[in-house]
Design a protein around this nucleic acid. Structure first.
Length: 1072
RNA sequence: GGGCGAGUAGCUCAGUUGGCUAGAGCAUCCGCCUUACAAGCGGAGGGUCCGGGGUUCGAGUCCCCGCUUGCCCA
C-alpha cells in the first residue's frame, strides 16, 4: 500500500479527480471482505446487513441512493468500531418486471413475441439483459461508495440461491405448507400471469353501475321451466307487483359494475330480511341469451337497499337493488358465496380476458344467442351486453359510478379475478404467521390477540424503527391470506414439482390430498396425491435438490438413509418415463427474496456452496438490521421473517426430537425430520424503515413525470460525498421527504439545490485541511509527545469539549438510526465550531503554542473519522495528509489504528473521553462568543470597515475575564485593545450582561442619529420583554408551581434587562 | 371504509419526558476578494408554529373537533 507523501492539497476539491483512485485503493486492500472465522472464534462481534437486492430491470434511482447510503453509513461506522462487518450485495431477478421489459424490447427491436422463441432461448435473452444491468447496478453502487463485500455478490437466480429455493420449496412442500388449489387469483390478462395480493394496486376509475333485469321462471318438472308473471307474484304478496302488467313475465333487477360477467352467473342472491324474499322462494331466473336457469338463493352478504331498510350511510345500500348476481368464477365475494351454497363455477373468459366458451363454460349453447359475445374483450363485451339487454327491454338503467379496481402493478391492466390452478404457501399456518407475530418486540405489539410465547431466544426480538411500522407488520399478518406463489412466466425459478393424472386405484379411496409412499418417496422425493373428479387423481412429486452426501451420512438414525447413489437427474428421467411432466410455472420472485438472508450465506449447505461460505450463516444470521422502504414491509420483511424462522428451526427441532423420539413416527420417506416444534432464527433483529423521497411538490419521483433525479448526475456535478451528506441530512423519522427538483440548463439534467449544501461542506473540509496542513507545515516543531487538557487554553479545552459532545451525539444518532442528527452534528462541529471559531481564534497563537498545534491536528483527524461513514471519499483522500501532519496526542482523545491504519475506512473510530467535556470552558467560551457577536453587530450597525481595529472599554473584572481567554476576543472581534481606560474620542456604549461597555475608534466621527435609532429600537425591545417577564412573575401560579430554578432564572433576567433599560435610557439622554 | 404520516420563515426542514424572546440551511437585503475557503466571511430582515376548543402557572409540543395534503391496506 502506497501512502501519498505529499501533505499539500490542490487548491480545489474536484471529486471526480479523487473518487476513482480511492475506490481502487479500497478494492486493492479488499477492505470490505468479511471473515466469519473472526466472529466464530470470538475475536470480533458481527455486524451484518444484507442489501435489499435491486431489481435487474433498471438502473438505480435516488431512492436506491438513499437506501444504500444509509446502509453504508451503518456498515462503515461499525467497521470502524471494530465489528466484523459484512454487507452482502446482490441483485434480484424480478420475474415479471424483467420479463416484461425484455419482451417489450424484443418486440420493438425485432417485432417478435416471447412465444416466437423456444423457452430456453428466450430465457437466455433475459439472462443477457440481466448481465448487462447487473453490471451497471454494481458499478452504480460502487460509485456511491458502498462498502459491500463484493467477493460475495449474489443474484437471486444464481446457483447458490437456486439451491436454497429448491431446498425451501421441498421442505415446505413435504411439510404440507405448499399446496395446489383451484382458486380465484389476481389475473393479469396482459402479462397472463397470476399476481399476489400485494402486486395489485387499487385505482379509482369512472365506471358504471348497470341495472339488469333477469326474467323469473319456475320449475315445472322434468327439467322444464315456465315464466312467472307479475300476477303470480302479486298473489304471493310480492310488494309492488301490482304496479306491473299482470300477464307480463316478472323479473328481478340486479345491479353490477361488470355486466359482462353475467355470462358466468350461477345464482341470484338476496338477503333473507328482504320482504320480497318469501314470495321468490324456490323460483329461478333465466339468463337472457345464455339460457341458463339459476336459482335464487339467500345470503347475508347481500346489502339491503335503503328503500327496504338498508343503512343510509352505506353507499352500497344507495345503489343496491337487493338482488345480487353471483358469478363465482369472476368475483372474490361471489366465490365465497358460491362456496357457501355449493354453486357451480363457470369461467367465461380466456386467459387474455376475452369472452370464451372454452375455459369452463360447459353449458354453453350458441342457440340461445350468447355466441355474439364470444371473442370480445371484457370492455367490448360489457358494451355489447348492455346493448343486447337494452334491445330486449331488460336494461333498467345505467348510472355512472366511481369505484376502485385492482390493477397490475406491472402492466397496469385491470386485474381479472380468474379461476385457475395455482400453488400456495400456507402462510396462515401458525408455524409461519404465528412465528412472525411472536417475533415482534413485546413493547411494539398493539394487538389484543396476544400469542403465547415460545421459550425461544428469538421471540420478541424484532424491532421496528420508527416504531409505528410495527403496526403495519402486525396488521398484515393478522389479516394474512395464503400466498399464491406460482407465476405463469418463463423468467424465474421453475417449480420443482412433477405431476400426472391417473385413475384412483380401486384399493385407495381418498378425498382431498394425501401423502403417498412410492418408489420416488423412498428415494427422498415428497409425493402427494390430490383427488380430482370422476375417479381420477393427480400425483405430485417434488424432487429435492441433489442431497449432500456428507449430510446423508450423518443423517438421523431414525430416518432411513436413502440410496446414496440418488441422482436427481435419474429421478426426473424416471418420473418423465412414467408420464409425469414438470410444472411449467415459475415461483413468485419474492419466494427467492424471502430466502435472501439465508441463501446468500450458503444455506442449506455451505460445504456444497464453496469454501468461502464456511461459517457465514452461523456468524452473520441473524443479521443486524434490514434497511428498507415501508412498501416492502409486507412484500419482503414478513416473508423473510417467516421463512428464516421456519427453515432455520431445524436445530431446535432436532434437539426436541432427541428428547421425544416418538414425535414423528410414520414419516419414513423423509430425509429430514419434520415437526419444527420451535421457530428458529430471525433473519434480522432491527428493521429500519426510511423515508421516501418525493419532489418539491410532494409527488413521487417517476419517469413519466420527468421529475426524477439520477444519482450518477449528482455524483458527477456535486460529488458522491455531497450526495450522501445531503441524503443523510434529509433522513428524519418522517415517512416522506421532499427534494425540490430543478433542471440544470447547461446539462439538461435534473438536479436539486439541496445537494449544494453537501458540496459546500466538502469544500469546507478541504479548505480547512489545507489551512491546517499549511500551519503545521510551517510552524511545526517542539511539540511534546502528548498534552493534557489542563495544560491547554480555554479555546482548546472548549474545542475538545465540543468534539467530545459531537462524538457522543453521533454515536447516539447511529444507535437510534437518526441519520439527520448525525449529519447535523457533523455540520455543527466542523463548520460552526472548528472552522468559524476555533481556526479563526487560534490563528495568531499557533506559532507559539505547541499544545495548540496538537489539538489542531488531533481534532481535525477525529472529525475526519467521524465524517468518514457519511463522506467516505473526501475523508479517505485527505486522511494520509492529515495523518502525516501528526504532531502529538491529546490525553482523552484516542484515535485507534484499527484493522488497517493505511486506510481510513479500516482505522478505528474516535474515542473521546467524557472527561474532556468541560462545562467551565464551554461557559467561558460561549460568553466570549456572545461578546464577540455583540461587537460584530455594532460594527455592522456603525459601518465600521472590517479591517479597522477598534477599542473595547470595560471594567477591570471584565477585562480580566476576557484576558483569561488569551488574544481570542481581540482576534475574533477585530479589536486593537481591551482597556479599562475611558474612551479618548467618541464612543458607542452597549450593554453586555447588564454591564455597560464601550467601543471607540469606530470611525473618525460617530453618527449620532444612527446611534439614537439603534438605542430606541433596543429600548422598545427591552420594554416589551420586561413587561412579559413582570407579568409572568406576578402570576402566583407560576412562582408557586414552576420549578424554582426557572423562577430564579426569570428574576435574574428581569433584573438584567431593567439594568440595561436604564443604561439605554441614560445613554439616549446623553445623546440629547 | 381502516391504518399511518405531514402542515413551523419565501423554500426544505429541526424542535424526543410541556419551561430562556421558536432554530438551521437555502433564498433575500447590507458590508467585505479580512492570505484556508466568494462553493467563502461578517451582519440584518423575515413566523397569528393549519384553524377552533380544552388541560396547565405555562402548549409548536399533551387531549378533542375540524380543514388541507400524502402514503399504505381493504
Amino acid at each position: 500500500m502506497t501512502k501519498p507523501a505529499q501533505t499539500e492539497l490542490p487548491a480545489k476539491y474536484v471529486p471526480a479527480e479523487h473518487e476513482p483512485s480511492v475506490s481502487a485503493r479500497w478494492d486493492e486492500a479488499r477492505a470490505f471482505h468479511a471473515d466469519p472465522a473472526r466472529v466464530l472464534s470470538g475475536e470480533a462481534k458481527p455486524y451484518c446487513i444484507v442489501i435489499p437486492p435491486p431489481n435487474v430491470t433498471a438502473a438505480l434511482h435516488l431512492g436506491h441512493a438513499l437506501n444504500n447510503t444509509l446502509q453504508d453509513v451503518l456498515i462503515r461506522y461499525h467497521r470502524m468500531r471494530g465489528y466484523e462487518t459484512l454487507w452482502m450485495p446482490g441483485t434480484d431477478h424480478a420475474g415479471i418486471a424483467t420479463q416484461t421489459v425484455v419482451e417489450k424490447r424484443v418486440l420493438a427491436e425485432e417485432g417478435k413475441k416471447r412465444t416466437d422463441f423456444p423457452r430456453d432461448e428466450f430465457v437466455a435473452r433475459i439472462q443477457a439483459f440481466k448481465d448487462e444491468y447487473e453490471e451497471r447496478i454494481t458499478d452504480q453502487l460502487k460509485a456511491m461508495g458502498c462498502s459491500c463485500d463484493w467477493d460475495r455478490q449474489r443474484f437471486t437466480m444464481d446457483e447458490i440461491c437456486a439451491r436454497a429455493v429448491r431446498e425451501a420449496f421441498f421442505r415446505l412442500f413435504k411439510d404440507g405448507l405448499i399446496y395446489r388449489g383451484k382458486r380465484l387469483v389476481n389475473w393479469d390478462p396482459v402479462t397472463q400471469t397470476a399476481l399476489a395480493d400485494d402486486e395489485v394496486e387499487n385505482e379509482e376509475i369512472e365506471g358504471i353501475f348497470a341495472y339488469l333485469r333477469y326474467p323469473l321462471v319456475r320449475a315445472i318438472g322434468s327439467g322444464d321451466h315456465a315464466p312467472v308473471t307479475w300476477s303470480e307474484l302479486a298473489a304471493k304478496g310480492y310488494p309492488g307487483a301490482e304496479a306491473f302488467p299482470e300477464d307480463d313475465q316478472a323479473f328481478v333487477t340486479v345491479a353490477t359494475t361488470r355486466p359482462e360477467t353475467y355470462l358466468g352467473d350461477t345464482a341470484v342472491a338476496m338477503n333473507k330480511r328482504d320482504p320480497r324474499h318469501k314470495p321468490l322462494e324456490g323460483l329461478f331466473v333465466e339468463l337472457p341469451l345464455v339460457g341458463r336457469i339459476i336459482p335464487i338463493i339467500e345470503d347475508d352478504y347481500v346489502v339491503l337497499p335503503v328503500s327496504l331498510g338498508g343503512d343510509e350511510n352505506d353507499p352500497k345500500a344507495k345503489m343496491a337493488t337487493g338482488f345480487l348476481k353471483v358469478t363465482p368464477a369472476h368475483d372474490p365475494n361471489d366465490w365465497e358465496i358460491g362456496v357457501r351454497h355449493d354453486l357451480p363455477v363457470i369461467n367465461v373468459m380466456a386467459p387474455d380476458a376475452s369472452i370464451s366458451a372454452d375455459h369452463g363454460w360447459d353449458d354453453y349453447d350458441p342457440h340461445h344467442g350468447a355466441h355474439v359475445f364470444i371473442g370480445l374483450s371484457r370492455e367490448d363485451a360489457r358494451k355489447k351486453v348492455l346493448n343486447e339487454f337494452k334491445a330486449r327491454g331488460l336494461l333498467e338503467a345505467v348510472k355512472p359510478h366511481a369505484h376502485s379496481v385492482g390493477h397490475s402493478y406491472r402492466s397496469h391492466a385491470a386485474i381479472e379475478p380468474y379461476l385457475s390452478d395455482q400453488w400456495y404457501v400456507k402462510v396462515t399456518d401458525d408455524r409461519l404467521r404465528g412465528a412472525a407475530l411472536r417475533a415482534m418486540a413485546e413493547d411494539q405489539r398493539t394487538s389484543q390477540l396476544m400469542l403465547p410465547r415460545e421459550s425461544n431466544e428469538h421471540d420478541g426480538k424484532l424491532t421496528f424503527t420508527p416504531p409505528r411500522y410495527a403496526k403495519t407488520f402486525e396488521q398484515w399478518h393478522e389479516n394474512l391470506r395464503d400466498w399464491c406463489i406460482s407465476r405463469q412466466l418463463w423468467w424465474g425459478h421453475r417449480i420443482p414439482v412433477w405431476s400426472r393424472v391417473v385413475n384412483i386405484p380401486s384399493d385407495a379411496k381418498f378425498e382431498g390430498t394425501t401423502r403417498i409412499s412410492s418408489t420416488w418417496s423412498s428415494q427422498g422425493c415428497a409425493h402427494f396425491a390430490q383427488a380430482l373428479s370422476e375417479g381420477e387423481m393427480i400425483d405430485f412429486v417434488c424432487v429435492p435438490p441433489a442431497p449432500d452426501k456428507s449430510k446423508l451420512d450423518q443423517a438421523d438414525r431414525k430416518f432411513p438413509t436413502p440410496d446414496a447413489q440418488l441422482n436427481e437427474q435419474e429421478i426426473i428421467r424416471d418420473l418423465e418415463a412414467n408420464g409425469f411432466t414438470q410444472d411449467p410455472d415459475v415461483l413468485d420472485t419474492w419466494f427467492s427474496s424471502a430466502l435472501w438472508p439465508m441463501s446468500t450465506m450458503g444455506w442449506p449447505d455451505a460445504n456444497a456452496a464453496g469454501p468461502e461460505f464456511a461459517g457465514l450463516l452461523d456468524a452473520f444470521n441473524p443479521t443486524s438490521v434490514l434497511t428498507t422502504a415501508r412498501e416492502i414491509i409486507t412484500l419482503w420483511v414478513s416473508r423473510m421473517v417467516m421463512f428464516n424462522r421456519y427453515l432455520l428451526a431445524e436445530e431446535s427441532s432436532k434437539e426436541q426430537m432427541a428428547k421425544d423420539p416418538d414425535e414423528s413416527q410414520g414419516s419414513e420417506s423423509e430425509i429430514w425430520p419434520s415437526g419444527h416444534l420451535q421457530s428458529g432464527h430471525l433473519p434480522f433483529r432491527d428493521v429500519f424503515i426510511h423515508a421516501m423521497i418525493q419532489d418539491g411538490e410532494g409527488r413521487k419521483m417517476s419517469k413519466s413525470l420527468g421529475n426524477g433525479v439520477d444519482p450518477l448526475d449528482i455524483i458527477e456535478s456535486h460529488g458522491t460525498d455531497a450526495m450522501r451528506l445531503t441524503l443523510c441530512e434529509m433522513t428524519t423519522q418522517t415517512q416522506d421527504v421532499r427534494m425540490p427538483v430543478e433542471r440544470d440548463e447547461t446539462t439538461g439534467k435534473n438536479t436539486s439545490p439541496k445537494f449544494d449544501k453537501g458540496r459546500n461542506f466538502c469544500t469546507k473540509l478541504w479548505n480547512a485541511t489545507r489551512f491546517v496542513l499549511m500551519m503545521l507545515g510551517e510552524k511545526s516543531g517542539g511539540e511534546p509527545a502528548s498534552v493534557s487538557a489542563k495544560q491547554l487554553d480555554v479555546i482548546d479545552r472548549w474545542m475538545l469539549s465540543r468534539l467530545a459532545r459531537a462524538t457522543r451525539q453521533i454515536d447516539e444518532s447511529v444507535a437510534s438510526y437518526q441519520f439527520s442528527n448525525y449529519a447535523t452534528a457533523l455540520f455543527d462541529v466542523l463548520r460552526n465550531d472548528y472552522c468559524d471559531w476555533y481556526l479563526e481564534g487560534v490563528k495568531p497563537t499557533l506559532a507559539t503554542k505547541p499544545g495548540q498545534r496538537i489539538v489542531l491536528q488531533q481534532v481535525l483527524e477525529a472529525i475526519l473519522r467521524l465524517m468518514h461513514p457519511v463522506a467516505p471519499f473526501i475523508t479517505e483522500t485527505i486522511a494520509p495528509s492529515v495523518r502525516a501532519a501528526f504532531v502529538g496526542r491529546v490525553d482523552g482523545v484516542t484515535l485507534p489504528d484499527g484493522r488497517n491504519p493505511d486506510l481510513l475506512c479500516t482505522t478505528g473510530w474516535p474515542e473521546v473521553s467524557d472527561a474532556l467535556i468541560d462545562e467551565d470552558a464551554e461557559r467561558r467560551f460561549t460568553r466570549m462568543q456572545e461578546l464577540v457577536e455583540a461587537i460584530r453587530r455594532l460594527r455592522a450597525q456603525h459601518s465600521v470597515p472590517p479591517r479597522r481595529k477598534i477599542i473595547l472599554h470595560a471594567d477591570s473584572d471584565m477585562v480580566a475575564s476576557i484576558a483569561g481567554l488569551g488574544q481570542v476576543t481581540e482576534t475574533l472581534a477585530g479589536l486593537d485593545a481591551i482597556t479599562t481606560e475611558s474612551p479618548k474620542g467618541e464612543a458607542v456604549a452597549f450593554d453586555f450582561e447588564g454591564i455597560e461597555l464601550k467601543l471607540s475608534n469606530l470611525a473618525d466621527a460617530v453618527d449620532a442619529s444612527a446611534e439614537r435609532e439603534r438605542l430606541e429600537l433596543r429600548l422598545k425591545e427591552l420594554e416589551g420583554s420586561i413587561g412579559a417577564l413582570e407579568k409572568r412573575l406576578s402570576n402566583p401560579g407560576y412562582t408557586d408551581k414552576a420549578p424554582a430554578h426557572l423562577v430564579a432564572e426569570t428574576r435574574g433576567k428581569l433584573e438584567q434587562q431593567i439594568t440595561e433599560r436604564d443604561a439605554v435610557t441614560k445613554r439616549l439622554g446623553e445623546l440629547g
